[in-house]
Design a binder for these strands. Sequence first.
DNA 1: CGTAAACGTGACTGTAGTAG
DNA 2: CTACTACAGTCACGTTTACG
Length: 321
Amino acid sequence: MKDVAKAAGVSIGTVSKVINKSGNVSPKIRERVLLAISLLNYKPNGIARSLKNSKTNIIGVILPGLYDIYLMKILNNIEKIASAKGYKIIYCSTNGELAKEIKSLQWLIEKRVDGILFYPTSEELTDVEIPPSIPVVLIERELKNYKFPTIMHEHVEACRQLIEPLTQKQSLLFFHGSQNDSVERSKITGFFKALEHLGIEKESDCFKEVNVKHDRTFIADYIKQTISSTPKVSGVVATNPILLSESIKVSEELGLVDQTDFEICGFGDIDPFEIRRNKIRIAKEQPNELARVALSSLLDQMNKSCKVVSKNLYVTHTFQN
DNA sequence: CGTAAACGTGACTGTAGTAG
DNA sequence: CTACTACAGTCACGTTTACG
């Protein structure tokens, strides 16, 4: 800038005004400055600009990884919308490890990002001091020790809508993931409530916990064994895409899908061509919408001079069949 | 249109105190 | 007296912006 100013015969301040199209600069001076910029091949220094403005135009995104389409869609949509609004993103992968979540947060804070979108894999985060100047929006899961607005799916309502249309609700088997996970817990609660609403007695032994970190063959075997050893199963309900797709596979293998009195439903993101029977009812999660709402909530906070405590927002599922 | 202060941090300088 | 440490203060980096 100093060199440009010298070459154009103006002050540094005037160069800045030309670059930022701010203030009044006469057309003649502007021409001279632009010529000097082009001759000297001057490029603004973003670090210095951030230093002065206390703004980096960068949004930090912390996700457990990009190991499935759902997470990829979230990141893709965040990037798309952020980019349109003039922001770049820094993506951090945590592999679902608390230690990496802490490190990612600390690193993003150190980088002075303007805001953070955080998809925690547990509620246990602690020991990270997050300055109030950096707004944080959580995706899908709240944290015990921090009060940040959270954008999540409306799981409880989706459970009701999954269960209600089933013709045989008495002898269902529910396959769910770890109860340490708040999302799984809210789905279990949702199914309990839905059953209660329908006047069906809750039998907790029809709820089967499956660790989705096991390999697929193990999960399939467990589901097969459970279905086979339970008398008069009228249907299977799965709380997440892994358990749903394995349940569908197993049910096909056991020849249950063809039986008119057997139904399958659950949460998933399965493409329509995989669904060979129209009786499989699926609550599809909405990663694009989740990303859109989360980012817009974050941008709201970033642009507010006085921080209004924004509330949690819910995204509704769409239903297939 | 120019001037000067300010942003956050690391590098550097100067000073005081301590140990041998 | 020298060599060293600890600490405080100052400056530089490139840019923006209030003010003259």
